[in-house]
Design a protein around this nucleic acid. Sequence first.
DNA 1: GGCTCCCGGGG
DNA 2: GTGTACGGGAGCC
Length: 818
Amino acid sequence: MAEKIQFFPLDATYKVVDGKAVINLYGRTIDGSQITVLDSNFEPYFYVIPKDSINISEKLEKIRIESENEPAFVARTEAVIKKFLGKEVFAIKVYTNLPSSVPTIREVIKDWDSVSLTHEFDIPFVRRYLIDKSITPLVLHEATGEFANQISRCAVFKAEEIAQASTDTLHNPKVLAFDIETYSHFDLAIDAEKNPIIMLSLYGDGLKKVFVWKKFNTGIDYVEFVDSESELIEKFKEAINNYKPDILTGYFSDGFDLPYIKTRADKHKLSLDIGLDYSELRVKSARETTVAINGITHLDIFKFIKRIIGGTLETYSYDLNAVASELLDEKKHNVSLAELPDAWDNRHDELEKFCEYNLNDSILTYNLAVKMLPTIIEMVKIVGIPIYDVNRMGFSQLVEWYIMKQAPQFNEIAPNKPHYDELQQRRLATYQGAFVYEPKPGLYKDIVVFDFRSLYPTILSSHNIGPDTIDCGCCGDAAKSSPDESEKHWFCGKRKGFIPILLEELITRRMRIKEIIKEEHDEKFAFLDARQNSLKLLANSFYGYLGFFGARWYSIECARSITAWGRFYIHKVIGKAQKEGFFVLYSDTDSVFLTLDGKSKNDAEGFAGSINAELPGLMELEYEGFYPAGIFVSAKIGPFGAKKKYALMSELGTLKIKGFETVRRNWSLIAKDVQEKVLGIILREHDTKKALEYVKSVVEDLRGKKIAIGMVVIHTQLQKDILDYANKGPHVAVAQRLRNKGKSIGPGSIIKYVVTQGNDIIRNRSKLPEEVKENEYDADYYINNQVIPAVERIFNVIGYKKEDLLETKEQTKLEGFF
DNA sequence: GGCTCCCGGGG
DNA sequence: GTGTACGGGAGCC
């Protein structure tokens, strides 16, 4: 008797059982328990396009490749008519015995004389399954079949059929956040081989816990003492098993916490078999380490925030404190982790505050995950890929998989990824980007900002730009050609391309949602807003995708045409603004900054209306805002302002700062400090004299050796062994001397050094901070290579040159020099 | 000017 | 695992 269950799939893997691939869908049932749904009704396949449309099915069906493991063979073939970039093609769908046979067999036949092309041979089996079966993760599905007896941490259901049951979505998955503290000396590399985990915190709905394996007096009830590191790891496993999270989340847990726990578990010969199928946590080390658990979605919330919403944040840095401050208005506890090893060894009464700190990090991580979840969930639903993968994808991949998911509806075969030679060629291809009207550096009043709503997406859609519509056979080059003489391309005027169709769907879906949001401000707001934001992020990435060298649907001609149209429209706005008597201050890509010059805000809004009356399709110029004052920062050299470097002050007095570079740890404190203070003085107080005097005073203090040594120390990490360096930079030379002194210096050590006076190259003048007396540092180096570069661009804006910053206070600036 | 190296996040 | 990984700045040669 067949049974039915309803469940929300979260993630999937596949396993080979008796020579056949079985999909394991992990999820949560409608009544809230974890479940694994098995589906063995899906076969691996890929496409072969034979030369001259000759049917080579018989020959293909005979392929059988023996190996030590299972043989690879063709199970069957099917002749199909598909489309490739809009054109019909005859193809053979080749089904294989196993997923792993697909690349094996493709490798054999790709060079056959009778084979023209092979396609879709590199699509992970699980993704192929989700696409072909139209299964969208997190959406309610109904499975028909029966429960199976199988070793597992949850019920296992063997499905004969799976279909979407409704549009219900798992909006509140069970989230568990965790964080570890390790024993580690701050001057040495983090070393999982050597140093134990000393505490581990967990935070979730109804769970609040810190495990620690040294005892101290405390009244905190969430602290639980254990006897050893291995017991701590056991407790971690047990807690996960009891809590049964859908999502296990950490901050940089792909790169730190989970690999660390894995290394320590290996040391203690403990298995981390926390998968729902008792499988071990899997650490995959490529360029970027990732960690996966079968049945539990590992969410590294840092990665998502940095990759997907980073661009919309103000913060320079993505450390937990900065990100939590901006997104949650919460902070990390202010404790000095450098003191943790000593507290651990000698001062147990101080461990309590570190436990609180440890728990707080889990709380922040949990709150960030919950805050991001609506966006993540919407992205998952739009793209059709599980949370785990969406978490680790960049924009181009999100776009690509969104197109991949939709391609079957258009009967399109996906183009292959470019291979090495092609990739090299594509990397070399350049094209003209956006138009930038460079601002004259300086301070301005009464600034009005307009921008095109989603400029590139609306151009792509309004002009029907895509790899299947470009230079079509049916239209001449007159109707829809690019406005730029250098780009002689046209786009079909009769048939809508499938990429414009897909993009238009995203744009119109977003517009509908924005309309709904305007009307009803209820509890649905958060997820509707997340949804429109996800749609926007994805839509905005299509243009970049077409020009991205790794893309399957790469078309640099399309990308070029889009920017050409972009330049055309922005020029139109600038020209018209000038004609109507506005002063055009600055323009970049899709925005125009005007100053009122006696005109009113109303005049400005009327201006936008007249532009909009002439725009095609979905295109629209929007009024972005009014700013009583603003400052534009200059480029390093030359009379014009730097692109994308400015600060505006709103009517409320808040600052909007764009384009100032991140200051990194291999800068001295004095450089970071001066940059921050100068920005503060100029942007908040608009007092350029004061800023100049401030820098001069710092320069003078450096010359007079009044700046403490601590402020001029530069930190650089050794990446490999000293002997392996071909080029010995300053930090390598210092590391060598440290080693000669008998210190244990290796990859990961942070080398601190101070550049001292002299005429030699820098590395020969770099010394340990403790070797240097207060007056020995090279003031000129710190002035010219640290402090000045940090603020030079800011001062160029307001008419000061590097030399002005270097002038001593006694010298006076030449009046009327310009 | 080209090549090499380091940054990020985590402790 | 039917995939794959970045981009910018500084110092040396």
